[in-house]
C-alpha cells in the first residue's frame, strides 16, 4: 500500500475515532437531557463519516474497484440523525423533564408541549 494513501486513511480514522469519543464523552458528562442531545447528533455523525470515508478508501484499494457503497450509510445517517434527535427531544418535552435552572427561555417549554405559539 502506498504511504500517502496509508497516511490519509490513518488520519481520517483518528479524526473519526476522536469525534466518536468526544460525542460519547459529552453524552456522559453534560448535565441535562436537552444539552446531551447535542453531542451524539453532531459529534458522532461527523465521527462516523470520517470512519466511513477511511473504510471507503481502504476497501477501494484492496478490491481494485471504486467502492462507494459506504456513502450510502453516510447519507442514511446524515438524514436520520436529526429526525431521531427531534423525536427524542419531543419525548423529553412531553414527559415534562425540567431543563437546567440556568436555561434561558424556560417559559417556552409549556407552549412547546401544547404546540402553541410562544407567549408574548
Amino acid at each position: 500500500m502506498p504511504l500517502f494513501l496509508e497516511i490519509i486513511v490513518c488520519v481520517l480514522l483518528l479524526i473519526g475515532g476522536l469525534f466518536l469519543l468526544v460525542g460519547s464523552y459529552g453524552l456522559a458528562r453534560l448535565p441535562d437531557i436537552y444539552m446531551r442531545l447535542h453531542s451524539p447528533t453532531k459529534a458522532s455523525t461527523l465521527g462516523i463519516t470520517g470512519v466511513l470515508i477511511a473504510s471507503m478508501i481502504l476497501q477501494s484499494y484492496l478490491q481494485d474497484f471504486v467502492s462507494i457503497k459506504e456513502l450510502l450509510i453516510t447519507l442514511f445517517l446524515l438524514i436520520t440523525a436529526p429526525v431521531a434527535a427531534n423525536m427524542i427531544a419531543k419525548t423529553a418535552i412531553h414527559h415534562e423533564i425540567k431543563p437546567l435552572n440556568k436555561t434561558r427561555g424556560k417559559a417556552l417549554v409549556d407552549s412547546m408541549r401544547n404546540r402553541d405559539n410562544p407567549p408574548k
Binding site: 444539552m35 438524514i79 440523525a81 436529526p82 434527535a85 427531534n86 412547546m112 404546540r115 405559539n117 410562544p118
Partner: peptide, 25 residues
C-alpha cells in the same frame, strides 16, 4: 429543521400547530 439540527450548535425540538414557529434548543 434537519439543517438546524445538524449545523450551528442547535437542535430543533418542536413545531407549533399552525406551522409558524420553530422551537429550538
Amino acid at each position: 429543521a434537519s439543517t438546524v439540527s445538524l449545523t450551528p450548535g442547535t437542535v430543533s425540538a418542536e413545531v407549533s400547530k399552525d406551522k409558524t414557529w420553530l422551537y429550538i434548543h
